[in-house]
Nucleic acid binder design. Structure first.
Lengths: 230, 230
DNA sequence: CGAAACTTTGATGGTCTTCAATTCCGGTGG
DNA sequence: CCACCGGAATTGAAGACCATCAAAGTTTCG
């Protein structure tokens, strides 16, 4: 059986060749959101797609009793709202001050029929999304708390990468609650394991939401799940 | 906040209007697989897409130490292998005797550029897949063992539905190991909770892999997570 | 029939959750 | 400037749920 050398690769941001908005012939509208502001809600009618310009948003689903699962985070360049027909199947809110560009979903679907390029771009976006979700499912179903956290930090390091190299110093831009709801854990477990990573020298935490990765290899090992914390 | 009346709807098989194979101008090839036979492996070069003709297959990812997470099951009419570029990002094997129709992936991508219909069909397939995966993530991250199992049975009841109504009597077509690896549990936990469902009168188990749902409403309540087992 | 694979059931233990209290941090107003 | 406040994070103690280990029962199939 063959395993890709680095399971994390699928999590890296796929470089977006061109802003979506420039491929569609219609007006776009920029919108600023403050922390925890809702972009749309599960069940809302789909009228727009959104391209993240700045900040971070999260797509999430909830159970009736309030349990929440964050499906994915959307970073600058990411598209939000693809693959919906009719009504959104999840909610979306900003996890920090953010900016999005809204694009008429009708216009996109109309143009997708005419221009093969746009259709292809949509399919690529959907593919990237699928890959990230598969990685996330493996994490949710089979990784331990510390492996989940390590994987999460690796993902962010990849997402915030500049010219292909992972970032070792970045702002999480979110609370422990957001992290917990993404990893299927509680805030206490996230906090405890963050402390473990700190005490083992793998990361530093200048502030609660600012991470400095000191040992990316060890972090990657932990994330891949084939090694525990010594 | 709005919640769709039944969270399970997204899990129902989206009726496939037309077999994929009839939309592509190329030779197709039917292939029979026996239980646990591999269709392809993570890392393999993508040369074909597959349309399930009969049986059930599973897409899965593994960690180095053998932990396995089943990403999705593929039932008749489902497509396998979409959204890959270059190499498969997961492995695929038959969970029971199955038949698949292989279609050249090059031919599909070529035709997708020419025929808007095919491109649209692919996008729809990808959308349906995304919806199912979101549901699955909520399950993996936030549901209890019994809720997971109830959700799983609801999904199968929807997938095996005839003319829109859920099936109350069906064959799981898979072992406890497969179920456990799909739900992020162990076989023992699956077995214990299957017994709980049986003892509470919600289901009957004529055989280990054959389920007869006696109380679909109660099962749905359990699956939605807003009610425990009395 | 007999062996192997699968399932069920029991006993025990570990990981993560829950509940609770304290600390930390940013912002506000005295 | 500092006390005060509220939200977030951390830390501790106890408990629940699920995993692990082990053994017996069941089914399948040569």
């Amino acid at each position: 059986m063959y395993f890709s050398p680095a399971n994390q690769t699928a999590l890296k941001a796929e470089p977006v060749s061109m802003p979506m908005s420039s491929l569609v012939e219609c007006n776009t509208h920029d919108q600023a959101l403050c922390t925890h502001e809702e972009l749309f809600c599960e069940g809302d009618k789909v009228e727009f797609f959104y391209e993240v310009v700045d900040g971070v948003l999260c797509n999430y689903r909830m159970l009736l009793d309030g349990r929440r699962q964050i499906i994915s985070f959307a970073h600058p360049g990411d598209l939000i709202g693809l693959g919906q027909d009719g009504a959104y199947r999840y909610s979306c809110e900003a996890v920090c001050r953010s900016k999005v560009r809204s694009i008429s979903s009708c216009a996109v679907m109309r143009d997708a029929r005419k221009h093969a390029g746009l259709g292809h771009r949509l399919l690529l976006s959907a593919s990237a999304e699928l890959a990230r979700m598969q990685e996330h499912q493996l994490l949710l179903g089979r990784k331990t708390a510390i492996e989940k956290l390590a994987s999460f930090l690796m993902m962010l390091a990849g997402r915030y990468s500049r010219d292909g190299t992972q970032q070792t110093y970045f702002d999480l831009c979110m609370t422990r609650t957001d992290i917990a709801d993404y990893l299927g854990l509680t805030i206490e477990t996230v906090s405890r394991n963050m402390t473990k990573l700190k005490h083992s020298g793998i990361i530093e935490l200048p502030e609660a939401t600012i991470v400095h990765v000191r040992d990316m290899n060890k972090l990657a090992e932990l994330a891949s799940g084939d090694e525990g914390l010594s």
